[in-house]
């Protein structure tokens, strides 16, 4: 009969109305600032720069190759190469970014910078509470603000970070083996140089 669908619908909403006072499980939302749902592991918001070890500048993986800057679709990354060099995780001398800014008001969270980075230096963060009262400077993050430790990376994306660490360790082992082989080939005077470059990268082995 005409109208029984309406009555059925009204009964449904009435049930929701009264039972939401009785059982808290019915409530599909959480009270946000006090309670929050843990972010999913695959969540991604804005990029950050990974560093190894305790010192953010010394351990920064970024070598200022500027691939991400060129690939970024909205062009929100600004990189200036340093004039000097510092050793990277395998001990090789590399440039580092003297300036690395990401304008997160422009960034569209596409993750292309992460995909193209050959050095596993830039990753996606899960931090989404980025509101600021300064809409010009506050949304332009510099390299200090972007730098996050590898431990933090592990805490937000554990599986992905472990995979990255394994890959880096493998690469490092390969480099060390090659160095050792080179040292052996160069006979006696060489070993000092090989051992000298090892210590700075020591701290990395999370695996």
């Amino acid at each position: 009969m005409l109208g029984d669908g309406i009555l059925k619908g009204l009964a449904e909403t009435a049930k929701n109305f009264f039972l939401s006072y009785v059982s808290r499980e019915r409530l599909t939302t959480v009270e946000y600032p006090e309670h929050r749902i843990p972010t999913a592991e695959n969540a991604r918001v804005f990029p950050f720069l990974v560093y190894d070890g305790p010192d953010w500048l010394a351990g920064m993986r970024c070598v200022a190759c500027q691939i991400c800057e060129k690939e970024c679709p909205p062009k929100c990354i600004y990189i200036e190469k340093s004039s000097d060099k510092k050793p990277d995780y395998v001990g090789k001398q590399q440039f580092y970014p003297a300036r690395f800014d990401i304008d997160i008001s422009v960034c569209m969270s596409c993750q292309i910078c992460v995909e193209v980075c050959p050095f596993e230096a830039i990753k996606m963060d899960t931090q989404f509470e980025l509101a600021t009262d300064d809409r010009f400077g506050g949304l332009l993050e510099d390299r200090r603000k972007l730098a996050r430790s590898n431990e933090y990376y592990h805490s937000i994306h554990p599986a992905e970070a472990a995979e990255v660490d394994a890959r880096l360790a493998e690469e490092k082992a390969k480099v060390e083996a090659r160095a050792k082989a080179a040292a052996k080939a160069a006979a006696s005077p060489a070993p000092a140089a090989a051992t000298e470059s090892a210590p700075p990268a020591k701290t990395e082995g999370g695996s």
């Binding site: 909403t13 009435a14 929701n16 109305f17 939401s20 006072y21 019915r26 409530l27 599909t28 939302t29 009270e31």
Partner: peptide, 10 residues
């Protein structure tokens, strides 16, 4: 508030 409760919200 009532509409919220009908949609299982607070």
């Amino acid at each position: 508030k009532g509409l919220g409760r009908m949609q299982n919200r607070l």
